[in-house]
């Protein structure tokens, strides 16, 4: 068992970062870690940028928050957000980014420019020990439900950790309505494949 992990999840309100961080936290408990999860509510429904801190420790987690430069893993659901939160990553840490762009209103009707995928790649090439741009939303859409993109990303994330896939699947199954269990199972496995 690894001693500790710091995760930062980020995305845009409505992308399912909350469910993903709930699953990530419950998996920790199921695997025998102490865990803390911290998020900020409030503006989340209104298309703002959202983030959640999740910390696992084999003994005890104190701080619910991670400082800049302290995340072992970034799991980001949207490309511009991947740039926004980059400083949280420990140099050499792992970053998994969903290949999805959601243009904020400052781009769609204002004068701001949306970054290119190459800019995201370039930034993480230098910063991260491992960088994966995963088409989570697209893979989920292929399976018939774009909303399962968050579970595809969890599948990808699971390959970096020493917890058996079955533990993840049990937690996910306990969290989604029965008629979506199979979809989410497949989404999770797709995410694992995407990392191969």
């Amino acid at each position: 068992m690894n001693k500790s992990y710091n995760f930062l999840l980020a995305g845009v309100g409505g992308q399912g970062t909350i469910l993903a961080s709930d699953v990530l936290s419950e998996v920790a408990l199921a695997a025998g870690y102490d865990v803390k999860k911290s998020e900020v509510h409030g503006m989340a429904q209104r298309g703002g940028s959202v983030n959640t801190h999740v910390r696992w420790d084999a003994e005890r987690v104190y701080s619910p928050l991670i400082g800049l430069g302290e995340a072992d893993v970034l799991l980001v659901f949207e490309e511009a957000e991947a740039l926004r939160y980059a400083e949280y990553l420990k140099p050499g840490g792992a970053a998994i980014v969903n290949r999805e762009t959601i243009e904020p209103i400052t781009v769609t009707s204002g004068g701001a420019r949306y970054p290119t995928e190459d800019e995201v790649r370039a930034l993480y090439r230098d910063l991260a020990g491992r960088f994966h741009l995963i088409p989570g939303s697209a893979l989920a859409e292929e399976m018939g439900n774009a909303r399962a993109g968050n579970v595809v990303l969890l599948g990808a994330l699971s390959t970096l950790l020493d917890v058996p896939a079955e533990t993840w699947l049990e937690v996910i199954e306990g969290r989604v309505p029965p008629k979506y269990v199979e979809l989410n199972r497949q989404a999770f496995l797709k995410g694992r494949q995407a990392m191969e």
């Binding site: 703002g48 430069g69 511009a80 740039l83 980059a86 400083e87 209103i105 420019r113 800019e119």
Partner: peptide
Amino acid sequence: VAELDKPEIPPRPPV
């Protein structure tokens, strides 16, 4: 903390 040469990131204010 990494000193990053980041492109300008569009603000995402609540709307």
